[in-house]
């Protein structure tokens, strides 16, 4: 059970870390100053969530590693995030829609996790949930604003949807150990997560008059450590300092 939960904590942490790192790339590139600040504030929250989940993983592992070791000293094949969260930041529409998908997912995920019978996970879920509500308010407002404004903004949102949609099923992928953890009341039930997510997301897309793409290649692999090439580049940049100067501190 501890090993299974360790892997699950990594999945949560890696997902938040990669989302946070991608948002941090916007620093100085936001469409205007206030939005630049908002993007990086959400980034900080996500990196904070990653830190909480890495700490849970550390405490389960029984090793002397730190949360930073898990973030900065593992290679791509050891990461457990779904491919969606490692995708490049793209344009603002792409970042916004990806963020919206993940915010809705996190809302339902942390609602469920705050009920976990594993105390540290329940606490982390509660803490993260309070912040995700703000993230979702913002990303949803932007989805509406972009989809209902100029023809170019609308077209970019549609393009983002076409590109991202088939990465979303992987958010709900489970394996044998996760199903066992869910049965034991430790983690969320991913089938109902998916159900709640779909209802909420499809209602917004309809309101925004965006069309779901009919078919496409469905992403998978993150849970087994099989990633897109993008993750390697991201880690090369993110982990550079710890790799070049092991143990370096601020």
């Amino acid at each position: 059970m501890e090993q299974a939960l360790y892997q699950y904590a990594l999945r949560l942490a890696d997902s938040s870390l990669t989302m946070g790192q991608r948002l941090a790339e916007w620093c100085g590139h936001g469409p205007y100053l206030e939005e630049d600040v908002a993007l990086t504030n959400v980034s900080l929250d996500l990196i904070g969530h990653a830190q909480m989940f890495y700490q849970i993983a550390v405490d389960l592992s029984g090793e002397t590693k730190t949360a930073d070791d898990l973030a900065f000293l593992r290679d791509a094949h050891e990461f457990r995030n779904p491919l969606l969260t490692e995708l490049p930041r793209g344009d603002f529409a792409y970042t916004t829609l990806k963020q919206y998908f993940v915010d809705v997912f996190n809302l339902h995920l942390y609602q469920a996790l705050s009920q976990s019978n594993h105390q540290p996970l329940a606490q982390a879920g509660k803490k993260a949930l309070m912040e995700v509500k703000y993230h979702l308010t913002r990303s949803q407002a932007w989805c509406e604003r972009l989809s209902m404004s100029t023809a170019e903004a609308k077209q970019r949102m549609q393009q983002a949807l076409d590109d991202l949609w088939f990465y979303t099923p992987e958010l709900f992928e489970t394996d044998e150990v996760m199903r066992q953890l869910a049965d034991d009341g430790v983690i969320a039930d991913y089938a109902s997560l998916k159900n709640n997510w779909q209802k909420q997301v499809e209602a917004l897309l309809k309101k925004c008059q965006l069309e779901l793409p009919a078919s496409g290649w469905v992403a998978t692999g993150g849970l087994q450590g099989e990633h897109s090439e993008h993750l390697g580049y991201m880690l090369a940049e993110m982990q550079f300092l710890q790799r070049a100067y092991p143990g370096c501190e601020w």
Binding site: E34, V37, N41, V42, L44, Y134
Partner: peptide, 13 residues
């Protein structure tokens, strides 16, 4: 409200 996030995460502008 100008932005949900102000000079720090705990503030809005």
């Amino acid at each position: 409200c100008i932005s949900q996030f102000g000079s720090t995460a705990c503030k809005a502008l």
